[in-house]
Design a protein around this nucleic acid. Structure first.
Lengths: 129, 129
DNA sequence: AAAATAAATAAGATAAATTCGCATTATAGC
DNA sequence: GCTATAATGCGAATTTATCTTATTTATTTT
């Protein structure tokens, strides 16, 4: 199946690039709908799915809520605050390729992705108490 | 809030221990409901939440679908097949305490949990093609 | 052991996040 | 420009999980 360039898809991609921090699909929708209220939520979802499949954006599968999306950045991991749900990027120097290949050997499968997420309470939320 | 021992809670805990592989809340419900059809889905969900909070069972936040539950085993990680959704345990020797403390230093927060999941195609699904 | 208390339950409503079905529209190749 | 089919819009449907409320039950107090 070939993909086509559409106005709505560009709006979706631009929104992810413009938006400061890890928007959810619904936040992307709200952002785009401000200027183009006639856009459909399903279109945003479909485009976010497609764009992350083609590698134009990155999907963060959030264990603490809805999935988030981000533009392509240098490789990093995420820290999710369980209080305020804020997501922070964390750069870590880990040989995940090695881990993936160990997992592959042990299971006999093909490992294509991995997800490493940290959870806890963020600086802001600690200071509030 | 103190927790109380109830018949339904025991059924929930026993189900997780009996069931072979990483049941979801709904699968636990179905399992228990076979013998006790009058049990409520909400009760199963509540008990699974409580039991994993008190540490009697472990919750696996599945990035590829509903959360799964498992009895307490030796520490391990998970490999999820994106085709058949099957979950395989993988034992890996990683110093995650170190990673968590690095994350803590970089973010200034308190890291209490971490999640490491591998995704791909399992042995069975490869052989089917 | 009976009464007081607070946790837990059943049942269904509700919520959040996302996808589906389908008629219609728009894009890209010829 | 015509044609095939990808993409859209809209609302319904799904999935996963929690909330509400009256009622029941387990523990604590007397």
């Amino acid at each position: 199946m070939q993909t086509r360039k559409t106005f709505q898809k560009s709006l979706t991609l631009d929104a992810v690039k413009e938006m400061p921090c890890h928007p959810t699909a619904d936040q992307v929708y709200a952002h785009v709908a401000k200027k183009y209220p006639e856009i459909s939520r399903a279109t945003i979802y479909r485009n976010l799915n497609q764009l992350s499949e083609t590698g134009e954006i990155r999907r963060f599968k959030n264990p603490c809520g809805a999935d988030h999306f981000e533009p392509l950045l240098t490789p990093h991991y995420h820290f999710v605050c369980t209080k305020c749900k804020e997501i922070t990027n964390v750069e870590l120097d880990i040989d995940t390729k090695l881990l993936m290949s160990v997992c592959q050997q042990k299971t006999g499968g093909i490992v294509t992705e991995h997800l490493l997420v940290f959870e806890g309470v963020c600086k802001n939320c600690i200071e509030k108490n």
